[in-house]
Computed example of a mutant assay.
Amino acid sequence: MTTPLLMLLILTLPLLANRLVGRTAAPAATEAAAAWGLGLVFLFTASGHFVQAEAMTQMLPPWVPLRLALVHATGVLEIAIALGLFTRRWRTAAAFAAATVLIAFFPANVYAALQHAPMGGHAWGPVYLLVRAPLQLILLGWTWGFLLRGRTPKRMPSRA
């Protein structure tokens, strides 16, 4: 149960440090600190895709093909999102990707909890969702409130 608390600590530390060091609460500094926190969370969760890859395959239904490759690929995706969050140029796109991933990966957490998968808190069964669902909502709310509110995805320029 320490993992969700650790994730919340990682998420909030850059923002708290920004405020405690005496930097201004300017929107750009707040956004950057919030993005760093979210990026660090994504790096933290991505590490599980490589350190505990075999256990993570059990979070997916058996009918999903190439489960280990999918676990590794989603770990790489989370690293890419984190790197995007660390740069001002890619921050908005990475934040949209982060929100999409948080929503898209949630069914795997539900499946894992229902199957009592031996990964993280999922072995607790459905009761773990009482922790996981609010954590997902916090991460989504953080992403929306600090990084996406009032923004729309940028379109790629057309090649006319």
Rank of each mutant, 00 (worst) to 15 (best):
L13G: 01
L70H: 02
A98E: 02
A33F: 00
R155K: 13
P65E: 07
T2D: 05
R159H: 13
R132C: 04
A34G: 11
L148T: 04
W142N: 09
A17V: 15
I10N: 00
L9V: 15
G120D: 09
V71A: 02
W90Y: 07
A80M: 11
L77W: 08
P126Q: 12
F105N: 02
L38N: 03
V21E: 09
A55Q: 14
V71L: 02
A108H: 03
L38F: 05
F44H: 15
W144A: 05
A98N: 04
R23W: 14
L102C: 10
G37C: 05
W142M: 08
A160W: 09
P107K: 08
T30H: 03
L85K: 01
R151K: 15
L102I: 12
T24L: 13
A117V: 03
L77P: 02
I10S: 02
T30N: 00
E31M: 10
L148M: 12
P14G: 11
L148K: 03
W36D: 13
Y111T: 13
L129G: 06
L15T: 14
P14V: 04
L38S: 01
L9A: 14
A33V: 04
V110Y: 09
L85H: 00
A133F: 15
G125Q: 06
A80N: 02
A123N: 06
R89S: 10
A69I: 03
V41W: 03
A112W: 05
A123Y: 14
L6G: 07
G125T: 10
K154E: 15
L114C: 11
A94H: 02
T12C: 12
L40C: 14
A117F: 05
Q58V: 07
Q115P: 04
A112M: 10
V76T: 04
L85V: 03
V71W: 03
R67C: 10
A95V: 10
L40T: 01
F50S: 05
A46C: 10
T74Y: 05
A160C: 03
